[in-house]
């Protein structure tokens, strides 16, 4: 399951980032690190990007990137 599959209002715990290089680095710098719980808040009106809550702030990223972030469901 990836972050792109998580429905708004639900959360996921990050398992692995399937991205490499500078982009992965940037995601990690923004707090997207393994073990962190992410809650999907909203999908933009036109269907992309997503708004998620992570490390108690709001982050927005496109589905293309979210799809490469592996998560496991949390309740």
């Amino acid at each position: 399951m990836t972050l792109a599959d998580v429905k708004p209002g639900q959360s996921g715990k990050i398992v692995k980032i399937q991205i490499t290089g500078a982009l992965k680095r940037r995601l990690m710098d923004m707090g997207v690190v393994a073990g962190t719980v992410v809650r999907v808040e909203k999908v933009a009106p036109l269907g992309d990007p997503l708004e998620v809550q992570i490390k108690s702030y709001q982050l927005s990223l496109r589905k293309a990137e979210a799809d490469k972030i592996e998560v496991e469901a949390v309740r």
Partner: peptide
């Protein structure tokens, strides 16, 4: 370039 952006309060 990708779109990874903070939505500040």
């Amino acid at each position: 370039p990708v779109f990874i952006m903070e939505l500040p309060p």
